[in-house]
Computed example of a mutant assay.
Amino acid sequence: MAYTYLDELTTKGVREAQRENDAREQWEGFSGSREFTRFDENAAAFIAARDSFYIASNSQSGWPYLQHRGGPPGFIKLLDDRRLGIADFRGNRQYITLGNSKEDDRVSLFLMDYPRRKRMKVLAHMSVHGAADAALARTLVDEDYGATVERFLVFTLVAYDWNCPQHITPRFTKVELAETMSVIEIELKRLRAENAELRARLGE
């Protein structure tokens, strides 16, 4: 069987948990497509629309660490069919994710599309590149965003997968709400004009 997201994460403990919850047979006999080891067109379009994601890294103390990364829509760039890159902006300067990567470069990414109730999960190896890297700067820097770029992060894909939409509460950004309201306002204007025309014809 091809190397996949579930293959990497299905450990002995996970298999035991699946058996305890009567789910082991479901995954042992799974025959659907799980070979997400290269980003396809569907994944590329999903990634290009994101303005944030969550990243989990492994600390030397044994505790996982979860952090949010954000930027302008499309700040996560597809460098090729196995690599993602971002400009890493200055934040609270704790550098926990950065420090964790010095000992263990494995990370897990979670990309959310709340309005459409869709999510992508990614296993990858993270590499750190200086802000002076001209090739990455040309690809990853959005001059209009105005944030301080401290470094570039590149994520080399191990495997990715999609989650089901259950229990995802739809949420909308200001931009998404503004776009929706704009459509509604246009339709209201059309209906008001139509109503006024009908009233005029009826002599009201």
Rank of each mutant, 00 (worst) to 15 (best):
I47Q: 06
G85R: 12
V141I: 09
M126K: 07
K77N: 04
L6M: 09
E8A: 12
T37K: 12
E16M: 15
R19K: 15
F89S: 01
N163C: 02
G71H: 05
E28L: 03
L157P: 02
E204L: 14
M181C: 00
P64Y: 01
A159Q: 14
F110H: 14
P115G: 12
P170A: 14
A134T: 12
F152I: 07
S61L: 01
G70A: 04
L136F: 07
G70D: 07
L123Q: 12
A134F: 02
E194I: 05
L109F: 06
R138N: 06
G99D: 12
R201E: 09
A49G: 08
L123C: 04
N195T: 08
Y65C: 01
S127D: 10
R151S: 06
H68W: 09
L177M: 08
E197A: 07
K174R: 15
A200G: 05
A147S: 10
L191Y: 04
A23S: 09
S127W: 03
D80R: 14
D144V: 09
G71L: 00
A44N: 09
D104S: 07
E197L: 01
S33N: 15
I55K: 12
R34N: 10
K189D: 07
Q166H: 13
F53K: 15
A132L: 07
E194K: 15
N21T: 15
N92L: 04
V158L: 11
R106Q: 10
R192C: 02
L84N: 05
R15F: 07
H167T: 00
S127G: 07
P64E: 14
V154R: 15
V107G: 12
E41C: 04
